[in-house]
Design a protein around this nucleic acid. Structure first.
Lengths: 190, 190, 190, 190
DNA sequence: CATTAAGCGAGACGGTACGTCTAGTCTTATG
DNA sequence: CATAAGACTAGACGTACCGTCTCGCTTAATG
């Protein structure tokens, strides 16, 4: 199909303004305070521009999350399995509890309980990438012979990160380094 | 203050109708489909009656959850620690994934990510009771000498139930008996 | 409409397409259904092209009306005053009630009630020409001595055509030949 | 159907505020400036309240017109036919050109050119009553023997009021007493 | 046994946000 | 340099719920 129309196309400035406004509103007023109307006003953008590019407010948050998440996708370390896991779990905990995208993630994870379509997208597009990173230290350890070759890595990931997400999303308890270190210690046979 | 008015007081019929309507709407249309207006219409109740007794729709769901949860607060078994834990985790998984109150719980847990006040109430009034039950098998095992006396039971609970909640709330993976059995095996072996 | 680029000034094809589209939309969907967006789409023309040449949708309709009106500006007859007036009023009635430009005129006259600027333009550019034609049979009759030399022709025109416009724009009654003939009879008898 | 709800029902204060706001906006900003949003804001009323009671903005104007029109429905005089007709046409001219409801009428008559349903309502509910009043002086004159018994009164009304509406709605010329007096004079055989 | 005040169903109210539509402006590549 | 394409800000549309309020009915303990 020929495209003879306006080639400068979508305004990157508007896109950025919308994502930032959504982020700010989430921080300042919580998920219910994130409204299309509010985003439009704060971003100095017309509602129609938002509806042109995003089907709903969660799509805006997803995109904001995607943009930010990249920076927090810490590369794997290259020490021994214990150091790798301890570092990884600690950074995961910090990501979930302290970072900006962590806040967005918690909001999206909450909304996903009400919205199966969002849940599916969140898993397919984002959680799968987080989980790949969770697997890296274990994969490396298996390859280096530090862990048995028949280790069920997915199961091990559930065991290691499950308690962290549980504290973050359910009990609301803090996730200090002692906690993540302890998880690693237990995992590696005390 | 003298009370000379209608002493038969609150209508239990209206209360039940509201709770059931909220439950039904949650199942049929999801959390966003649970509206005060919708509950009132379906329950054949005036909005004012709802606002008289419940501050918000989550309070209605909390009350519905409280009523139902009781029946699922399975008493602890009295076998050995392995059987107890396996039975307990399996029933917890069933509760979260299959039961009616489990559905309500997931919705409330989701909403709690957006609403710190709800989060606090949920933890104080409901999660704490669930956790008490989670502690029972471990407590018994310690008392029977099956587990060391210096076991940090709270930490152990996080390790055991964390991965279950993680699958339920985050990955959406099923939680089969093999999974919970494996968690117990790892916990007891280490 | 296939037209890309042009060094030869304004595109007559685009002009025609716009005028026809406006006319069609007016007939099919009424005045409210005539939108710049709709005209652009139907004419296969860019909105900008419309805005470049016409300040508003009523200007488009005015231009369409002007093009069509010419054909209906019936030349005066040359019989006696009675025949002239009967023929003229009948053709005026047909023009207003049956013709395409008559439909556009009614829409513009309606809009003029909301828009004083349009009202002024309509009167200055179009109604004045219609009225000139209304005067012709009377002028001729005066010159031929059929009507008194001191006749106030403008007043006479108001009397003769006023009831016709009244039926067309206000009561919605039909304007049959009997009606216009009667008007002439009353006018000439008095 | 039993009505067991709130019997105080509709708020007369809100109704009045809406009608006045609509009237004011029409005067200040013209027909296009009359928006539901604007009426709601100026009247201090919720949009939903407007939509509950009126299907559209023209219905609001119709109701405002109906309320006001009553006061201008001048009772017939009881002099001779000449005095009656002169007084009647003069007051009709004043009503159409100077009064508040006259302004609303002109706007509605304009809109009726775009909206056949409104046109039908306007004729059935309002114009018919105006026309009844137009007939009164003629009817009286016929009964008193001042005019022939076989007079076609409807035709006579068209002749008498048509030129007035024509000036008001089409040419925009003023309608002074001389004009209406002249119409009567011509009608009564000079 | 009549009084009387609380609970109730009904529903109007002032609001906020929704998602859609059109207006009118601006920018770009094409021919 | 006029054009087709189309993104942009602006703002009204009509709808859905929110949470508050007022009304008249029903009910049962009090006086």
């Amino acid at each position: 199909m020929r495209h003879t129309g306006n080639r400068h196309g979508r305004s990157e400035a508007a896109r950025q303004a919308v994502l930032e406004a959504a982020d700010d509103l989430l921080t300042e007023r919580g998920f219910a305070g994130v409204t299309i109307e509010g985003i439009a006003t704060r971003a100095g953008v017309a509602k129609q521009t938002i509806y042109r590019w995003w089907p709903s407010k969660v799509d805006i948050l997803l995109e904001a999350f995607a943009d930010d998440m990249e920076e927090h996708l810490f590369p794997p370390d290259h020490g021994n399995v214990g150091d790798d896991l301890r570092a990884h779990l600690h950074r995961l905990a910090l990501f979930l509890t302290e970072s900006d995208p962590g806040e967005v993630f918690r909001a999206l994870a909450g909304q996903a309980q009400h919205d199966p379509v969002l849940a599916a997208r969140l898993r397919a597009d984002y959680l799968s990438r987080l989980r790949e990173h969770d697997r890296v230290p274990l994969q490396g350890a298996v390859e280096r012979g530090e862990l048995p070759a028949d280790l069920d890595i997915d199961l091990a990931v559930d065991q290691l990160v499950g308690p962290i997400y549980y504290r973050v999303l359910v009990t609301g308890d803090p996730v200090p380094r002692e906690f993540t270190d302890h998880l690693v210690a237990r995992f590696l046979h005390d």
